[in-house]
């Protein structure tokens, strides 16, 4: 028998990731404490702040708090996840507009869901492949998130607000029972 050709991926060593549970959805956003996890990419802050403002002014959200990612390129630490989960009924994070930060946003979403917080992850349309791949790696194949056109970084202040308004319906669908 000839020698076998060896596998360079270590696939035999990889343990299949346990399925990550998805958080229960809320009936509505009325009275919800919304946490914004801002990834520091250009225009992410005004984009998410506008989403938060609309949800508060028009959809009965009780409060909006902000948290800034320390490093947009990697998933958040357990401590930050715990703190967010303790202080938020719903989390909105983004804007994923690069390779590492879109994957990291999806990973943050999946981890927060597994501790019971419904999340709306927002990435630009250019990065769906990497966001979906990361969600699958984290045990949540087919994880749903919101998308917006690319790019976001070069939009003016007014354009960012207008763009943020276009994702509101998707964000609400993602975190409430209407998504089921």
């Amino acid at each position: 028998m000839p020698n076998a050709i060896l596998d360079p991926t270590g696939a035999t060593r990889l343990q299949k990731k346990a399925a990550a549970p998805r958080a229960p959805r809320r009936a509505s956003l009325a009275g919800a404490r919304v946490g914004l996890l801002i990834n520091t990419k250009q225009n992410a802050r005004p984009f998410l702040e506008e989403v938060g403002r609309i949800l508060k002014d028009e959809h009965g959200v009780a409060s909006v708090t902000e948290r800034t990612k320390l490093n947009f390129a990697v998933p958040e630490s357990d401590e930050v996840i715990k703190e967010l989960a303790a202080t938020s009924d719903v989390v909105i994070t983004g804007v994923g507009d690069c390779g590492s930060c879109s994957a990291a946003a999806a990973a943050d979403g999946v981890v927060l869901e597994s501790v019971g917080v419904p999340v709306a992850v927002i990435v630009t349309e250019s990065f769906t492949a990497t966001a979906s791949a990361m969600a699958e790696l984290r045990g949540s194949p087919g994880y749903k998130y919101a998308t917006t056109a690319h790019p976001v970084a070069v939009l003016t202040g007014e354009q960012v607000k207008a763009r943020a308004a276009t994702v509101i319906d998707d964000v609400i669908k993602l975190v409430t029972e209407s998504a089921e």
Partner: peptide, 8 residues
């Protein structure tokens, strides 16, 4: 370590 291999 911090995402460089994934970077644009």
């Amino acid at each position: 370590r911090g995402g460089g291999f994934q970077s644009t």
